[in-house]
Design a protein around this nucleic acid. Structure first.
Lengths: 149, 149
DNA sequence: TCCAATTCCAAGTACTTTACTCGGTATTTC
DNA sequence: GAAATACCGAGTAAAGTACTTGGAATTGGA
């Protein structure tokens, strides 16, 4: 039941971008360095996030990435699902067109898998990027200018 | 964020055992056949469940496995955690001695990981084996004697 | 007393997934 | 025109998953 690095890196990087953006695009390289993630690998994750509509990119020198929406409107859940796919614990309870097993009609264990799925979604959808930004600022009141994670 | 087959097979098999037990030990082979799981593989899972105190075994001919406790006192969570380990989505928020990263003190993403962890535990600990048995019986009122899953 | 049925145990292995790397092209600014 | 960036597709090493294999130990019943 572990998240892959995709989800973890994605959330970290989106938060990094939110903290460092504002005055223009942030180059992937700087995010990768701060977050200690392979640049080439993060590139792939950002491609996914861009296609999912979370990021906008600006090519060429002085280019980089910017958030496509206000952090208040970006839930952690939407980031995670973009990168990880459904957060359902078992294929048979994936939200759209689940892969059913032969005994799906009689299977009562699905009750549990659905509960897990719903609770996980509840958890990740209740937190926005902005919530994390606020938490970050709160926990760094002494040296409020050090906006790295 | 998927469960492995260990967790899924474990819950299915414990339920199967609960439905077929009662008049004595149930041989692993019959559970494996009904649930369409490799017998040798299930053996390994049952070894874990036995060591975790969920099962008792009786060796030799006419032997098999029986539940160590009343289904009312066995939560799905305890089965899953025995087989899968902590259900935390990230190592750094595992319940006992988590593996912390270097930035753990400042890391705000942990807020989300902890929320997921707690919600998942809440979901799986709110359902007992007996709940699934009851659900199963309810959904099979017409042919109530067919107690397989 | 032996055989069949069972649990118990430790290694080995094929397959799949993850987490990357590599090499290049396209675009933009200075 | 050179440097800095994003974009793209393919390849790959390591780890994890889901088993298999080959046995030893125990027990009940013929």
């Amino acid at each position: 039941m572990k998240l892959s690095t995709k989800g973890r890196y994605g959330v970290k990087s989106m938060l990094d971008l939110a903290l460092h953006g504002g005055e223009g695009p942030v180059p992937l390289k700087s995010i990768a360095e701060r977050q200690d993630i392979s640049e080439n690998y993060l590139e792939q994750l950002f491609a996914t996030l861009r296609k999912a509509g979370h990021l906008k990119s600006i090519r060429g020198a002085q280019g980089g990435y910017i958030l496509a929406h206000d952090p208040k409107n970006i839930t952690i859940g939407s980031i995670l699902r973009s990168l990880e796919g459904s957060l359902a614990p078992v294929e048979c309870v994936v939200e759209d067109d689940p892969i059913k097993c032969s005994k799906s009609d009689r299977c009562v264990t699905k009750i549990v898998w659905k509960k897990i799925r719903d609770k996980v979604n509840e958890a990740v959808d209740s937190v926005t990027l902005d919530d994390l930004i606020e938490e970050y600022k709160k926990s760094n009141t002494d040296d409020a200018y050090i906006y790295y994670i």
